[in-house]
């Protein structure tokens, strides 16, 4: 499937994957992340069961400290 991840096109050899799978696959290492699919928030506790499909627009953001 083809998705847009953080405004960039990405290809995967599967038809669907959970948000948690994507986080592992793409090595998002920070403890704190904010995730969205098609501009809708996916809460941390929903990442295991929320599936990403072909054509989805996905955002995964590291919460980087400092301000």
């Amino acid at each position: 499937m083809k998705i847009t991840l953080n405004n960039r096109e990405e290809h995967f050899d599967v038809d669907a994957m959970s948000v948690s799978d994507l986080i592992i696959e793409k090595n998002f290492t920070f403890k704190l992340l904010v995730t969205k699919i098609n501009d809708k928030l996916v809460k941390k506790e929903e990442r295991d069961k929320t599936m990403i499909k072909d054509g989805d627009k996905v955002t995964v953001l590291h919460m980087v400290s400092g301000g």
Partner: peptide
């Protein structure tokens, strides 16, 4: 400043 507060408000 803190990442947990950033995540909370976003």
């Amino acid at each position: 400043d803190s990442s947990s507060e950033k995540a909370m408000i976003i």
